[in-house]
Simulated assay, not measured.
Amino acid sequence: MLEVVSEARSHGGRQLVLRHGSRATGTPMTFSLFLPPQAEQGRVPLVTYLSGLTCTHANVTDKGEYRAACAAHGLAFLAPDTSPRGEGVHDEEGWDIGLGAGFYVDATQAPWSANYRMWTYVTEELPALIAADFPILDMGRQAITGHSMGGHGALTVALRHPGRFRAVSAFAPIVAPSEVPWGEKAFSRYLGDDRASWARHDAVALLKSGARTADILIDIGTGDPFFAEQLTPERIERAAAAAGQPLSLRRQEGYDHSYFFISTFMAEHLAWMTERLR
């Protein structure tokens, strides 16, 4: 059962924050959902946004500047949390592992496997829950996006669910987590040493193995301090070109990794998605 944590009117629509008990994670989970004014007259398409390291649902809800564009285009906007939380949930020192850093995988290694089942949560449990509780959402018209770790999540979720999403975008995504320090640290803890299991959560590896999705739009700032070591956008450019996967990757001069960057291009991403969600 969903509990309404808060509700506010915005741009003629409703900004909700909701909480429920998750079967996937075994913990309470909180997420935000914006319903545009068009939802009062008929069904509306859904955009899911997956957040990055250290974030909760609140970062994009407070700083993402998506509501005006969603209201203009008639888009619902869903923002889940990035990890399980609560008493007894395992954590480690460091901001890039544990709480706020679930990497959108189902952990197979103890002690993480007890709660860190974010893949099942974002691909199965949460979509089923909101479809049942909000029939105004048109689940046949979906798009997905995300930032950094969430960009990794958006790309891999879309590549492994062909046909579910009509458009996929990402802000500064980790495109090849199997090959960069952030991903190597998280995958080794959550998934163990079997790199075949890592490949199922690596967008570049998925493209190389034959996975395909709808059009992809990626923005990344040339001033991003993680550009060369963690994000490596050239890897997905090469993989997409070799695979014939439609991809537009834009290097935005001087922008960094923050929500100043994300909010600048959010409206463009939502307009681009709208064209594909008609």
Rank of each mutant, 00 (worst) to 15 (best):
P84F: 09
H161W: 03
T82A: 15
W182G: 00
M118C: 06
E229T: 15
R251I: 00
T232S: 05
L247A: 01
S263H: 03
D202M: 12
G140L: 03
E92C: 03
A211I: 05
E125Q: 05
G42D: 06
Q109E: 14
L78W: 08
Q38G: 00
G26C: 02
G42T: 04
A58E: 14
F265K: 04
I97G: 09
R67A: 08
F171K: 03
A239S: 14
E7M: 01
R19Y: 01
P127I: 11
D106H: 08
Y49V: 05
M273L: 14
F77S: 10
T222K: 00
V180W: 06
F261I: 07
A72G: 14
F171P: 03
G163L: 08
Q38S: 14
G153V: 06
T213P: 07
V204L: 04
L155F: 03
Q15W: 01
T82Y: 10
T61Q: 13
A39R: 01
V204Q: 09
Q230S: 11
I216L: 11
L46N: 09
E92F: 05
S263Q: 12
E268C: 02
T264I: 01
H73Q: 07
D215I: 06
G223T: 04
Q38D: 08
E229D: 14
R19P: 07
A101M: 04
L159R: 03
G86Q: 02
R235F: 15
D133T: 05
D193F: 03
A214G: 15
A114Q: 10
L247E: 05
L46Q: 06
Y259I: 02
G74A: 14
V122W: 05
W112H: 11
Y116S: 12
H152T: 12
G12Y: 01
V44P: 12
V175S: 01
R195M: 14
Q252K: 12
S6H: 00
V105A: 11
R251N: 03
M29P: 00
M266S: 02
K63H: 06
I216R: 04
P28F: 08
Y259A: 01
G140A: 07
T123V: 13
